[in-house]
Design a protein around this nucleic acid. Structure first.
Lengths: 116, 116
DNA sequence: AAATACTATATTGTTTAACAAGATAGCTAT
DNA sequence: ATAGCTATCTTGTTAAACAATATAGTATTT
């Protein structure tokens, strides 16, 4: 198991909720989107259980829709409760990132990029 | 269980290694240090198992030393192997932080503080 | 039309992390 | 001695990530 998959623990729910909050997606598409943004180790075996759990907990709602070219797809939308949860996760993430950056990059030149 | 404890998953090893890389610490002291930097939910029940696991895996070495005022303390130092592992974790963290920030803060004004 | 490949969802079983709770024990103060 | 603080360690629970696999519809090739 890669180190990154360990780091992933606990933030995957938030990432998935964030994507679904932007637009309806289905699982197969979601796994590709996450890979595109750089979360390259996330496979279907990981994503589908997360989606089912988020649905069970009322964070998202799934709806089967036919596809023009392939099997049916289950599109997920975020619920009001899911949006609340996402905001809490975003808040917790902001609280966590600074101390961890501080610890892990202490004594290191802050090689920032020009992307903000 | 708090959301933050979920977010913690997978990054605690790195945080602990980072502290020990700076100086010898013992578990009880470490838990206070982590709380000071903002990782406030980390208790002894969490830290001691991590320390024992890191020691078992050769990342750190523990040595019992007497205390002036209280029971013996087990001071930990990082090993060469632990330093390598820490560098890998730091690298993985850097790779992970940007995509996750991107996802979780998309569409949000980047309310940065003046602390850098 | 049969076989293969791709799209798509779901489940099962394994490993491992965080953690609450509690056991153990030494030192300090009353 | 009793209580409280310091300090380490263990046990048992919950839950997350994930590999592996099952299932099935659609598309492509032969």
């Amino acid at each position: 198991m890669s180190i990154r998959s360990q780091l992933l623990k606990g933030i995957l729910d938030g990432c998935i909720l964030a994507v679904i909050a932007e637009e309806s997606v289905y699982g197969y598409e979601l796994s590709r989107k996450l890979q595109q943004v750089g979360l390259s180790d996330v496979s279907e075996g990981t994503i589908y259980p997360v989606l089912l759990r988020l649905q069970k907990n009322g964070m998202i709602e799934g709806e089967m829709r036919p596809s023009d070219s392939g099997p049916n797809r289950k599109y997920y939308d975020i619920t009001a409760q899911g949006e609340e949860a996402l905001e809490m996760i975003q808040e917790e993430w902001r609280i966590l990132v600074n101390p961890v950056n501080e610890l892990l990059q202490r004594g290191r030149i802050n090689e920032r990029e020009t992307d903000d």
